[in-house]
């Protein structure tokens, strides 16, 4: 089909559009976080740390899964998967939102999840130790509280 568009129209609209991003539709999504089966890139240990940290952090704040999901503005199903499925790969945005709520480093949460490679592996060992000290029960006992405090400390370091 022939489209009749004047030069003047093109000029005016090009100036109006300027440098705007115009992408629409799933096929236009930038590939930055196009994720395909990456579970093997992260060790179960680091995923376990992430899993335990989110759960402990949530319980430490006295929040249900639903309440944390609402506070962080993320999907409940995504949060449940993070806490219960060690092979689940979270969305980058989800980790960003959770990092904001828990006031820890988004970069480190990304590294724990396997979305990025850790630049400093030392803190991982420390984080794994803290996470391993806790077990999942209804309320945080003193050991769990100490583990959570330790995790926050480690994940907050710049």
């Amino acid at each position: 089909m022939k489209i009749n568009v004047t030069k003047a129209w093109c000029e005016k609209m090009a100036r109006r559009e300027a440098y705007a991003e115009v992408g629409a539709g799933l096929l236009a999504i930038d590939p930055t976080f196009e994720i395909e089966s990456v579970s093997e890139t992260s060790s179960d240990e680091t995923r376990f740390v992430l899993q335990r940290f989110i759960e402990l952090g949530r319980r430490g704040m006295g929040l249900s899964v639903e309440q944390l999901a609402e506070q962080a503005d993320i999907e409940i199903a995504e949060l449940i998967s993070i806490e219960s499925d060690i092979h689940h790969l979270p969305e980058p945005r989800t980790l960003y939102q959770l990092a904001q709520v828990f006031e820890v480093s988004q970069v480190k949460l990304m590294e724990l999840s396997g979305l990025t490679n850790p630049k400093d592996v030392n803190y991982l060992e420390e984080a794994v130790r803290y996470a391993a000290r806790s077990e999942s029960i209804e309320k945080l006992n003193p050991e769990e509280q100490a583990a959570l405090d330790g995790l926050i400390s480690v994940l907050s370091k710049k």
């Binding site: 489209i3 568009v5 129209w9 093109c10 000029e11 609209m13 090009a14 100036r15 109006r16 559009e17 300027a18 440098y19 705007a20 991003e21 115009v22 992408g23 629409a24 539709g25 799933l26 096929l27 236009a28 930038d30």
Partner: peptide, 30 residues
């Protein structure tokens, strides 16, 4: 519109500097 995309060199956000051509998005919407 199932899909609309401009070439990478026409996207400032992607290349980090002034793009080669502007105006393609508006023409396609038209």
């Amino acid at each position: 519109v199932d899909f609309i995309e401009v070439a990478p060199w026409n996207r400032k956000e992607l290349i980090g500097h002034s793009p080669k051509y502007s105006g393609a998005g508006s023409i396609l919407i038209r």
